[in-house]
């Protein structure tokens, strides 16, 4: 009896008791080719890791020299004169963040709307075409957006900037004033502003955001959508009750991925802005700066000290985009829509 309880009753009690405690060991015999393969694949991984680690460690080491001389002043100083030992990224970081936020104001409504439009409104026939088109736009080089911004947008946006600043000038960041607070009217005061750069960068990151969001929306369980429609919801009711909550991870993740790219964008911003080294809170006024265009501007004239100062600025930018990317991917992976895809 005791035996029967111990061993589960699948076996016939009449059969002699086989000792199952001794499970046969499965040994995977790897031959020479297998071992070589494992070795080669592993060394591929190691080389990749080494390259990545080298970039990170090298950046950190070289930046350290510059950071040690400046301490926390590095984050609060606006001037950039490494030759005098006085430099900080307050102004460039402010510009970088301003441009990225303006870019998000352009890209998020457009991207969200387009993602919903493609996944919920467009008929199946043209859906594939629209998806390819948006994905293709994600591969358009940033220099193309840059020349569009310089030669087309710049000229056409000035009247609007002027109108906005004269109408809504009472809002501090929309005003365009000179040092003593008098409004400026000259068109040249409106060129090369953070708004123009932000607009171009926004258009550049929209395709990435759209495809992340659309991917999340397209995974909404059909049963839940049909359930909402069957209960009498309109299309918008269905989107609000089912699709948007389901794709929330995708919306946040896509937005942050776009933010990461907007912060790191170099050449389009560099072509549009006129660099200054002071904090300019008037986003319509000419003159702003960004970390990456600072590097592009100063790499040539930099001495070894100057180079490590630039490295420090690059390191801060990298850390910011790193945190944003990791947050984004963990949000996407932990959301319902991202659970299967990752």
């Amino acid at each position: 009896m005791a035996k029967k309880i111990r061993s589960t009753s699948l076996r016939d009690p009449e059969t002699p008791d086989v000792d199952f405690a001794e499970k046969r060991q499965l040994v995977q015999v790897s031959d020479f080719a297998d071992k070589t393969f494992a070795g080669v694949a592993r060394s591929g991984g190691i080389i990749t890791l080494a390259i990545m680690a080298a970039v990170g460690i090298f950046l950190a080491l070289r930046a350290q020299a510059a950071l040690e001389t400046q301490g926390w002043n590095f984050l609060t100083e606006t001037a950039w004169t490494p030759e005098n030992g006085k430099f900080g990224i307050a102004a460039v970081l402010f510009g970088t963040v301003t441009i990225a936020i303006i870019a998000l104001f352009v890209s998020v409504p457009l991207g969200l709307g387009t993602a919903l439009f493609i996944s919920e409104v467009l008929p199946e026939r043209i859906k594939g075409f629209a998806i390819s088109l948006v994905d293709l736009m994600a591969a358009v080089p940033s220099v193309v957006f840059g020349i569009w911004g310089v030669f087309f947008l710049q000229a056409n946006i000035i009247p609007i900037s002027y109108w906005v600043s004269s109408t809504f000038g009472f809002i501090p960041f929309l005003a365009v004033t000179d040092g003593s607070g008098n409004p400026l009217t000259d068109p040249s005061a409106f060129t090369s502003s953070a708004v123009i750069a932000g607009f171009v960068v926004g258009l550049m990151v929209v395709p990435t955001q759209t495809s992340v969001m659309r991917e999340a929306f397209s995974q909404t369980p059909l049963g839940e959508k049909e359930g909402a429609l069957a209960l009498g919801a309109t299309r918008w009711g269905m989107i609000r009750a089912v699709v948007l909550p389901f794709g929330r991870g995708g919306i946040i993740g896509g937005t942050m991925l776009g933010l990461g790219r907007a912060l790191g964008e170099t050449i389009a911003v560099y072509m549009i802005i006129s660099p200054i080294f002071e904090i300019n809170p008037q986003i319509l006024k000419s003159g702003t700066n960004s970390v990456s265009s600072l590097i592009a501007l100063r790499y040539g004239e930099a001495s070894d000290n100057g180079l490590s100062a630039l490295m420090a600025a690059g390191l801060v930018l990298f850390l910011i985009t790193l945190v944003i990317n990791f947050t984004a991917s963990s949000i996407v992976a932990n959301s319902r829509s991202g659970a299967e895809s990752n």
């Binding site: 090298f58 590097i295 180079l307 990298f318 990791f326």
Partner: peptide
């Protein structure tokens, strides 16, 4: 180890292109 490599490779997608250039330069 593979998981670790994957995490680092994911992190590197965030590297701004100008910083990659700066790394090679210096």
């Amino acid at each position: 180890f593979a998981k670790f490599v994957r995490t680092i490779a994911d992190a590197m997608t965030a590297l701004p292109s100008i910083v990659a250039g700066l790394f090679v330069l210096s």
